[in-house]
Write a protein that binds this DNA or RNA. Sequence first.
DNA 1: TAAATGTTGTTATCATAATAACAACAAGTG
DNA 2: CACTTGTTGTTATTATGATAACAACATTTA
Lengths: 257, 257
Amino acid sequence: MYSMAEPGAQAGAIAELLKSLGLTKYEALVYIALLQASGATATEIHELSGVPRASVYPVLERLSQKQLVSVSNTSPKRFNPKRPDEAIESLLQSVENDATRAKKVLNRIYSLSSRIEREDQELIWSIHGDEHIRARLLELLQGAEESILIIFYWDHLKAELIEKLLSLKKGVRVEIITDGWTAPLPDHINVVIKAPPKETPRETGQKWLAGGVFIIDKKMAIVVMGSKDEGFTALYSESVGFIRFFTMYWNFFSNWE
Amino acid sequence: MYSMAEPGAQAGAIAELLKSLGLTKYEALVYIALLQASGATATEIHELSGVPRASVYPVLERLSQKQLVSVSNTSPKRFNPKRPDEAIESLLQSVENDATRAKKVLNRIYSLSSRIEREDQELIWSIHGDEHIRARLLELLQGAEESILIIFYWDHLKAELIEKLLSLKKGVRVEIITDGWTAPLPDHINVVIKAPPKETPRETGQKWLAGGVFIIDKKMAIVVMGSKDEGFTALYSESVGFIRFFTMYWNFFSNWE
DNA sequence: TAAATGTTGTTATCATAATAACAACAAGTG
DNA sequence: CACTTGTTGTTATTATGATAACAACATTTA
C-alpha cells in the first residue's frame, strides 16, 4: 500500500493551518477527508483520514457542533461537509469576534491603568531573530516624521529597506551611509557610498558580520548587528544617551576617510 | 485581601478570548498584566498575573517570539507590551493568513476530488440545537430562487424569519401558513392565518411544542420541531420522497378547516 | 569587611488536562 | 452466521501548567 495518491500526505500540512482556526488535528483530518468524499460513512472517513475509527465518532460530533458537518439519520450515518469557503469563513468569523472583543477590553485596561511612568525612554530594549528585527525596524521607520539617519551594511535586508524608504512621505529627510545603492534617488534621500568598515580581516571571529544604525527623528535609535552563525540582535531606545552616542557614531562615519 | 479591584478577576475571561488567537492561558495572563504595568520586571509581572515566577520567564520568551513584548537589557530585565490593538491585529493577521491559505487548498481538494456521487439528494440530514438550526435555515432561505412554502409555529424565530423573508428578491413567491403576522406584506408574500394545530391538550407529553416546515424551490425541504425541554431538531433533504411528503402536508394544512 | 539576606534568572522536576490511539463489545444488518 | 456499526472504557502521548532548587549577584547589617 505504498501509493494511493496520498492526499493524506499534504493533509498534515493543512491540518496545521486549520489548527490556528481552532480545530484539532483529528478534526482537521476528518474534515479534509470528508471533502474528498461527501456523504461518507464513519468507516470510510476513518480509512481516508487515517484517524482511528473509534475516534471518528466523537470528532464528527464536535465538528457538527461547530457546524462544519451535517449528519444524516440513515443507518449507517452519513456525513456531509459544509463547503470549505463557508466553513473557514465562519470559523474565522468567530475568531474575529473574539479578537474585537479582546481588543476592546485590552485597550481599556491599557489606557485605564495608571501605567506606572517608568521613564520608558531611559530603557534600552532588545530584539532577537532576523524576522523580528526586520518587522520592528520597518515598523519604526514607517513612523518617521522628520528625519532618518542610516548606516547600513546588511545585504539581506537591503531590498526591503529601500522599498520602505522610497515609500515614506516627502517631508522625511533621509541620510544614508552604505556600500552601494542601485535604486532611484528622490531628492529627500541622500546617499553616501563608503566601503564597509572592514577592520582588517573580518574572518577573525565570525564570518558574515553585518549591521546597521538607524536614527529616527533624533529621538529613537535602533542598532542591528549580527552574523550568519550567531544570529542577529537589535537594540533600540529613546534614551538620550543612547541616541547621542549613535548620532556621534553616525557623524564620525559620515566624515571618515 | 478581598478587594483590590481585581482586574485579575476578569482577566480569566479575556484569557479565553486570547486563546482563540493562539495564546495559552499564561501568555494571555502575562500580557494582560504587562498592559497594566508597562516596563515591569519579571517579579512584578508574576505578582500581577498570578503566574508562578519561574513560569514567567519562558512565557515572556514565547511572547517576545510572537512580537508581543520587547525586553530591555537592563538588570533586572524589564518588559514592554506591544500596544493591544497592534498586538491583536497582528495575531489576527496571522490567523487570517492561515485561513486564506487553508481555504485555497481545501477548495481545490473539494472541487478536484471526484466526489463520489452518492445521490446526496436521497439522503436526509439532521441538525441539532437551536442556534445551528437557525443559522442553517436562514442560510437556505437566502438561497431561494423561485418559491418558498412555509408552515410556521415557532415564536422564538419569528422576528428574524420575517426579516429574512422581506429581504428576499422580488422574484421569489412566498406562501406562509402561520398563527399571526404583523409585518408589512409585499405582494410576493401571501400569508394565511390559521390557529395552531393544537391536537387537543398539548400539555400531554411535552410543553411548548413548536415547529415549522419550509419548502424551497420545490427541491429542498426543512422540517423543524422541538420543545423547550427536549431541544430542537431539524431535518432537511433534497430527496423527492421527502419533499413530496411535506408538500402534501403543506397542501393539507392549507386547505384545512 | 564578612556574614546574612534578598533578588534574579535558570534549570530540573512534577502534575494535570487535552488529545491521540487502541481494544473490546453490544447491537444491528444482511 | 459473518460482518459492520456505533459505543465504551482504558492507555499513551503531548502540551501546558505548577513547584522546587540553585547559582550569581546585589544589598543590607554587624
